[in-house]
Nucleic acid binder design. Structure first.
Length: 132
DNA sequence: GCCAACGTTGGC
DNA sequence: GCCAACGTTGGC
């Protein structure tokens, strides 16, 4: 099972919104690298939900509830995402940068990427930081 | 408010 | 095909 990281600006659509809605269509992605990751997602994959902007912290774990389908007519895709659980302790960006084993995270190396892969090792390290 | 990174657009 | 200009994202 693969792991991912989804980034969102909490003022536009945050973790609380996802929990309230019980899930949402992760659409509107218009970046080829991010779209490639969306296409690689499978039902049941877990995704860290990260708040950019003021929070700058991973706050929850979401699950991919449906694989990629067309989002518009130009080859872009969207997936369905549902909330799984909140993290016992949010993991801040500063904590990720400081953590051994997370320095190479795709999200840290390319900060603008809104959808990125997380390796098994990174996932384990993140869960430890999150108090899971 | 500024700047770095990165993608897109358009002139040549 | 190159590159300057510009827009967007996101951290500081």
């Amino acid at each position: 099972m693969a792991h991912w990281l989804l980034k969102s600006e909490p003022d536009s659509y945050g973790w609380d919104d996802l929990v309230r809605d019980g899930g949402t269509e992760w659409d509107g992605v218009r970046n080829h690298a991010a779209a490639k990751h969306l296409r690689a997602m499978a039902v049941g994959d877990d995704a860290i939900f990260y708040h950019s902007g003021k929070d700058k912290a991973a706050v929850g774990i979401a699950r991919i509830a449906r694989a990629a389908q067309a989002d518009g007519d130009e080859g872009w895709v969207s997936v369905r995402v549902e909330p799984d659980r909140s993290l016992p302790r949010p993991v801040t960006l500063a904590a990720m940068k400081a953590a051994v084993g997370l320095q190479d995270m795709a999200m840290l190396r390319q900060s603008r990427l809104s959808v990125s892969p997380v390796t098994d090792g990174e996932w384990t390290a993140l869960m430890r930081l999150a108090g899971e």
